[in-house]
Every structure is written in structure tokens, then in C-alpha cells.
């Protein structure tokens, strides 16, 4: 598999701070894969994203040691704005992403394409397609400032999706969404994955990550304490000691183990749990 992003021994301090926000990061992000990033508040998830997109150190300044390579080239060597074409970045706070120069959601989503110089007819086509995908076509004529937080989050995501980059860095896109809204964002992200997009998603909702992510990165105190397949990471009970939330099913299986009912594999999704439990129960019935 090709590498989309590579961190080579990266340590980064924000300006005027002595403790690094992230330290000793070395890992690769492969093309076409979906990565979930988890970790406690302040563990450096957003900083990690900012480094991938080159906002740190280019915009935030501060001190970077090591290298962040995007498609083999160091982020500090990219021209102004060039990375915007390669990496779509969705911020944690949707309100701050509203351009402030458009008075309808349609125009807001079209704004990035206007900046890229896309012809109006093509803009219309692309914007409508994305609005249908993200289920916000009914908001097209509303003022973006007058949307609910959840609606703003969808608009923020749509405004970046429409630009069509190959890599997406998405920072907690569901923090203000209800369970249904969250599911629908995950549906969108899964659809993006089918289009061979590379996705880095910061998300606290591990149950959903368990069902869709290929790999999980776990951050704690600015360090990458674990990276591996979703199954491997989210069934690692030791992470709970670090204050990392695991999927309900993994917790359940751990409780069962403490009660003396060890499962052959630690399930992380409902489907898996059902399967594993069914097998065990059938076996027991068979014995009796």
C-alpha cells in the first residue's frame, strides 16, 4: 500500500510553551484507509491533525522537530494553499468554519469551489450532489449562521467534501449531533472510504469506530501509545487503565471474563458479540 502521510519522529511545541503538545510521533497513514484517532481531552489529537495539514508550524509557528511528509513531501515545503487541494480539513468547531461572506448554505458550500475557479455550472452540479449525500438539500436557502450546531457540522463537512481531495482530516465532526445525525455522518464517511479516500477521523464514539475504522490511533499526553487494527486496539483492556473508553461489547466481554466466562475473542461490535455468544451457548447446549 502507498503511504499518504508519514510522521518521522515528530515533536511539536506551541509557541511560548515548553512542554510539547505531541512528542516522538513516528507512524504511517496508508492511502485509502480509514483511521480513527482517540484519546482524552488535551491528549494532542487536534495538534496531530494540525501537523498533518501543515497548520503547525506554518500558521501556529512554534517548534517542530522531525518531519511530516504528505505524499512524500514535507509539509513545510508545500506552497501556500497547495495542501488545501490534497487534504480536506474539517475543524472541531463548526461555527468558526462558516466563511462569513455567504448568506445561504448553498452559496457557503459553493464558496470553496469559487476559490478554486470552478465554472458555475459545474459548481452547481457538485454542490447539489454533496448536499444530497449529506442530507442538507432542504437547508440550501437558509442562512448558515441560523442553523443548529448539528446542521452547521453537516454544512462544514459538506463544504470540504465538495472540494474532492484524496485525504480527509476530520476533527470530531459529531460532537453536536444526535445519535441519528452521528450515524448519518458515519454513513457519509464510509461512502467516502468506498471512493478510495484516505480518512483520519478524531472521534470519541468508539462503538461507531469499531464498526467502520480500519485502524485506530490512541493518543495520551501527546504520545501515540498504540496504533493497530481496530480489532486489536479496541479489544485491548489495558487501554481502559489509561482512561480510554472502549466499545460496550469489549467492556462486556471483560466483565464476563472477570466472572469466569472467557470468550475466545474479544468482540468490539454488536454483530461480533452476537456471533461469539451464540457459538458459546450452542457449545454448552451441545455438551449438556
Amino acid at each position: 500500500m502507498d503511504t499518504a502521510i508519514e510522521f518521522k519522529d515528530v515533536t511539536y511545541c506551541y509557541p511560548l510553551t515548553k512542554t510539547p503538545a505531541v512528542k516522538n510521533l513516528s507512524f504511517k497513514i496508508e492511502k485509502g484507509k480509514f483511521y480513527g484517532v482517540i484519546g482524552a481531552n488535551g491528549s494532542g489529537k487536534t495538534t496531530l491533525c494540525a501537523l498533518m495539514r501543515g497548520f503547525a508550524p506554518d500558521f501556529y509557528k512554534g517548534e517542530l522537530s522531525g518531519q511530516v511528509l504528505v505524499n512524500g513531501k514535507s509539509t513545510i515545503d508545500y506552497e501556500n494553499g497547495e495542501l488545501a487541494l490534497r487534504i480536506g480539513y474539517v475543524f472541531q468547531n463548526p461555527f468558526n468554519q462558516i466563511s462569513g461572506v455567504k448568506d445561504s448554505v448553498f452559496e457557503e458550500i459553493a464558496y470553496g469551489l469559487e476559490n478554486l475557479g470552478v465554472e458555475p455550472l459545474e459548481i452547481e452540479e457538485r454542490v447539489v450532489t454533496i448536499m444530497e449525500k449529506t442530507d442538507i438539500l432542504h437547508l440550501a436557502e437558509k442562512n448558515p449562521f441560523e442553523l443548529s450546531g448539528g446542521q452547521q457540522q453537516r454544512v462544514a463537512l459538506a463544504a470540504i467534501l465538495v472540494l474532492g481531495p484524496d485525504i480527509f482530516v476530520i476533527d470530531e465532526p459529531t460532537s453536536q449531533l444526535d445519535p441519528e445525525g452521528t450515524e448519518s455522518i458515519f454513513e457519509i464517511i464510509k461512502a467516502m472510504k468506498k471512493e478510495q479516500k484516505t480518512i483520519i477521523l478524531v472521534e470519541h464514539k468508539v462503538d461507531l469506530l469499531a464498526e467502520s475504522a480500519d485502524e485506530i490511533l490512541v493518543m495520551a499526553n501527546g504520545e501515540l501509545i498504540k496504533k493497530g487494527s481496530t480489532q486489536e486496539v479496541l479489544s485491548d483492556i489495558f487501554l481502559m487503565e489509561q482512561g480510554i473508553q472502549l466499545p460496550q461489547m469489549a467492556i462486556l466481554s471483560n466483565k464476563l471474563k472477570q466472572l469466569g466466562i472467557g470468550l475466545p475473542v474479544t468482540p468490539i461490535t454488536e454483530a461480533q458479540a452476537t456471533e461469539v455468544l451464540q457459538k458459546i451457548i450452542k457449545k454448552k447446549e451441545g455438551i449438556q
Binding site: 487541494l85 480536506g88 470540504i160
Partner: peptide
């Protein structure tokens, strides 16, 4: 930064 992400 959000503006820059939209190709400004």
C-alpha cells in the same frame, strides 16, 4: 485556517 481549507 478554515478559509485556507477552502482554497482561499
Amino acid at each position: 485556517l478554515a478559509l485556507s481549507s477552502k482554497g482561499f
